[in-house]
Design a binder for these strands. Structure first.
Lengths: 153, 153
DNA sequence: TAAGATTGAGCATTCAATCTTG
DNA sequence: CAAGATTGAATGCTCAATCTTA
């Protein structure tokens, strides 16, 4: 018997499980909201910051296809995210000289400045959010989340 | 010194923190996606199921205002969620006899059946998602998430 | 036909403005 | 004017269909 929970009544146990996973969804959402609030001060959002991070992470300007893969989303989402970033003047679309079907995404100077300011804003919020957690607890949480992602991601 | 992490280089430590919190956001998202996939089979989504749960949780049909409070969202979101639920025939708007500004939200018979089917679908997915986690680990994760919510929520 | 990108429709969410009623 | 509800615009995401190029 792998878990002593089975001694509980079935209904209670189900409630506990729902509570646990709903808490995980909720925890993710409030974390995202905190990041967004911090990034708003520099004119970014978490998806926008994350996209800039991925574009800057590769040597050559990535295609939309590659960006979507890096972000773990569908192509059309990357298209629209780049639309919004371009409207903000943070990225630029350039044609791919090697394949006329593709376009390459470049980060502008302003985009790079914004990304760096965003990274500082994020770091500050992280300190605040994890303030009450010991190193062991952080590693525990990190390990559990990593296992979730490996199993389900 | 509350955490041995401080011995790491600043840059590495920041990366670890980002990784942890991004993992939390990601874990919440993939959990939500799994719930949504399971609920799709019964014609629901996680927000719709959650709304039905909250409406059924109170004695008297709640106002939109109360529903928004229960769901932890703004009024306009509750309005539109109820729009979609009503379009599906799962809830019904009725005027509040005590205050002509308010409307009350009632769950239809079909709505109640859908909610119960959704609850069974969710329970099945939960078993699957938490299969590899011991009771102690579940309690650990639950406790950490609860502390996050208390501190940030 | 395949692949890269875009567009259109829909869900879920927020904020700001508005309309009705208290 | 306050409060309840709605509407419109925006962000962010999905899927299905389309357009262009390989």
């Amino acid at each position: 018997m792998y878990c002593s929970c089975v001694n509980k009544l079935r209904a209670e146990r189900t409630e506990d499980l729902i509570a646990l996973l709903i808490a995980l969804v909720h925890g993710g959402r409030i974390t995202e909201a905190r990041f967004d609030a911090a990034l708003e001060a520099v004119g970014l959002s978490l998806p926008k910051w994350h996209a800039l991070k991925q574009i800057l992470a590769v040597e050559e300007p990535p295609t939309l296809r590659l960006l979507a893969t890096q972000l773990g989303c569908v192509k059309s989402n990357a298209t629209q995210l780049v639309d919004r970033l371009a409207a903000d003047g943070l990225v630029r679309r350039t044609p791919d000289p090697d394949d006329r079907r593709s376009i390459l995404i470049e980060v502008t100077d302003e985009g790079r400045r914004r990304y760096e300011a965003g990274t500082r804003a994020i770091a500050a919020v992280e300190e605040e959010l994890l303030e009450g957690f010991s190193c062991a607890e952080r590693q525990e949480l990190s390990g559990l989340l990593r296992r979730l992602e490996v199993r389900w991601g």
